[in-house]
Amino acid sequence: MTSVIKKVSLNLKRVCFKRGTRTILDNVEFSVSQGELVLMTGQNGSGKSTLLKITAGLLKPQQAQVSFVPHDGQQGSYSWPRLKKLLLRKVCYLHQHPYLFHGTVYDNVAYGLKRQKMSKQEIEQRVVQALQEYSLESLIHRDCYELSGGEKQRVAIVRSWITRPDIILLDEPFSNMDKESRKKSYALIKQMCQQDIAIVLTSHDPLIGELSFDQHVHLYQGKMTHKLV
């Protein structure tokens, strides 16, 4: 029996992930709701990226109880293949060093929209508008290999945002950015939360205090602790 619930929520319980004999995540519990901004901290190798990739449906955990209610979906318990499909459709993951496809900034930002089978005109309109909002319109016809690290990161964030997923997972999104780019990114992240997109980000950035988080979770040797914000 399923019931329609509008509010997005993703709950992960008892998540365990091992690589060979090494335990990466040990009984981790984690949840995120519509429009929430979640900070995930932890040392290198603490399992942050692994947890984000599981949340995005890119990695299959050895054990996990996952319940997910997408914006337009139904609550229910799903088998992993179905859940994976749903997560891949509704959750967007951005690598620490984002990958930009060969081609221009336009090609990259339009990539996700093309998969949504929009008309060429609509895609063009939305890409231009999104790049303008993020002050990246001057880069629209630039080849991606010409961009700086910070510009690549900002283009990748816009590329994720434009597909309007329910949740965006940002792995160290500010690592290649200067102060100015970070401020622009903070503004975009706040805007995304206002648009009811949930954001989970990992960061070592001391300036991150400029963002007000709804949750702060900390991973230490594969175990999670929740901190007050």
């Binding site: 890119l58 959750v91 967007c92 690598h95 597909t163």
Partner: peptide, 18 residues
């Protein structure tokens, strides 16, 4: 090839074939 290319495409809504 870069594994991130596959992951990025998939997470942006591409089917396995695309």
């Amino acid at each position: 090839s870069d594994q991130r290319a596959w992951e990025t495409a998939i997470t942006l809504g591409a089917s396995a074939f695309m």
